[in-house]
Amino acid sequence: MSRQNAEPIIRVTDVFKYFDQMCALKNVSMSVAPGEKVVILGPSGSGKSTLLRTINRLEDITSGRIVVDGNDLDDPEVDINKVRMEVGMVFQSFNLFPHKTVLENLTLAPMKLKKIPAEKARDMAYQLLHKVGISEKADVFPSRLSGGQQQRVAIARALAMEPKIMLFDEPTSALDPEMIGEVLEVMAQLAREGMTMVVVTHEMGFAREVADRLVFMDEGVIIEEAPPHDFFNNPRHPRTQKFLEQIL
């Protein structure tokens, strides 16, 4: 647990988020240490995706403070686009660019944003595709791929920017059951390599195996935080207990 003592790379402090009248995040505070893998659990509508999306400011917050790798996201001096280059994100619906080939999906951002030469970007893209196990699909369009393959490409696309942090927003929820494993395996490998990861998921097996810490949310509030072993075996809060009863 020495990790938690290191200077956090993500620090969320007293965050509120309102959608019109609806309060999606209520006084949420949380931090993530470099290299730490945090899995956020909770029933749907609990605010877990919203919390994740505030970390790269896809969602603006109503009040509070979020600091990512030393950058206060609400500081007008901070270029949010620069911050986002360091924070990869994987979506439930993949969101690959359908007008680009798999390879181009991976090279677009590095070439345009980091001005990496085409050849170097391509080499890197091939390495990443190899890593996620679909190098043979480099030249096809995303619509030709299965959901699992698309999601692995989406992970590779995020990794192509060489981010320090990876955010996963229910990455397997849109997949057919037989494809969930291949995506989780890629994520687990990424975790073993030491990537800092924040994952919103319903995959309890993954949470148990990979997470350093679980965060349980309900109705916009963080109810409980614990390492997986404690979380699953000795949930302290009644709502956590009820949630675990329902899903396990």
Binding site: M85, S93, N95, F97
Partner: peptide
């Protein structure tokens, strides 16, 4: 064009104009 396309591009670090030019308009 699905909102996810904009989000994907923005999350990679493209600004609004770049997102429009590289991702949204071609589609």
């Amino acid at each position: 064009i699905h909102k996810g396309q904009t989000e994907a591009a923005r999350s990679l670090g493209f600004n609004r104009a770049q997102t429009m030019y590289y991702v949204i308009l071609p589609q």
